[in-house]
Design a protein around this nucleic acid. Structure first.
Lengths: 112, 112
DNA sequence: TAAGATACCTCGGATTACAATGTATTTTTC
DNA sequence: GAAAAATACATTGTAATCCGAGGTATCTTA
């Protein structure tokens, strides 16, 4: 059985990619932490917890790639919505470019 | 300046991908640790040290994905060459398939 | 009204990664 | 031909990271 090795590696890879994924999701629409957990699960199958998502969002905000604002709900708890800053958009363009380069480099080593 | 964030993330991603890359390289030809360091640099620009490559190779061997044998050189130090086992080949097929799925999932979130 | 879901946040101990270090031979350089 | 640099293996201590667990609060459902 080789499932365990593959599972661990796959989960690790998805976690490494998280910032890229989160930034790209936030480029399309503003989102809050708890919803990101759900969306990431939908998109990648990866089940993360709050202990994973909030530190990442805080870090991206501290670095200046994200803004956030509290939005009151008609009903329910207020939510902290995140959006990309101008810097964040520029940075993301380069990050996506890097992502593509890496994929190309790696795929060049994978036989078809 | 956003280079630092991008650099760190890029390096981290490449390191996470290392096992996939190494296994695919070894599928094409038998290689030894020191040469892998050179080839990985050529392919991805990632500069790793022995402290990185040998533990990975040992781990892959312990797990049963790799075989190794010492080969004496006409001149120079003997080298420890690694090859894929049958299990390793099967596992790699699945690993590559996972890799493609992840790329597809992530790219679906990246605007063009 | 209790349980479960939504939504935020923090932190310390477990894990992990790798720089540094060590050995030995060969090649190059001056 | 001595010293330095390169080739090639291996290990390990600690520095950094990560996230499960735990905490607060409100809303919904059974």
């Amino acid at each position: 059985m080789y499932g365990k090795f593959i599972d661990n590696w796959t989960i690790q890879l998805k976690k490494t990619i998280l910032p890229l994924l989160i930034l790209n999701m936030l480029k399309q629409e503003q989102l809050y932490g708890y919803l990101l957990i759900v969306k990431i699960k939908e998109c990648t199958g990866l089940e993360i917890t709050e202990g994973t998502i909030y530190p990442i969002l805080n870090r991206l905000k501290e670095d200046g790639w994200l803004d956030c604002k509290w939005i009151e709900q008609k009903t329910g708890i207020p939510r902290k919505y995140y959006t990309l800053t101008m810097d964040g958009e520029k940075m993301l363009k380069e990050l996506n470019s890097n992502w593509n380069t890496i994929i190309k480099d790696i795929n060049s080593q994978i036989e078809i």
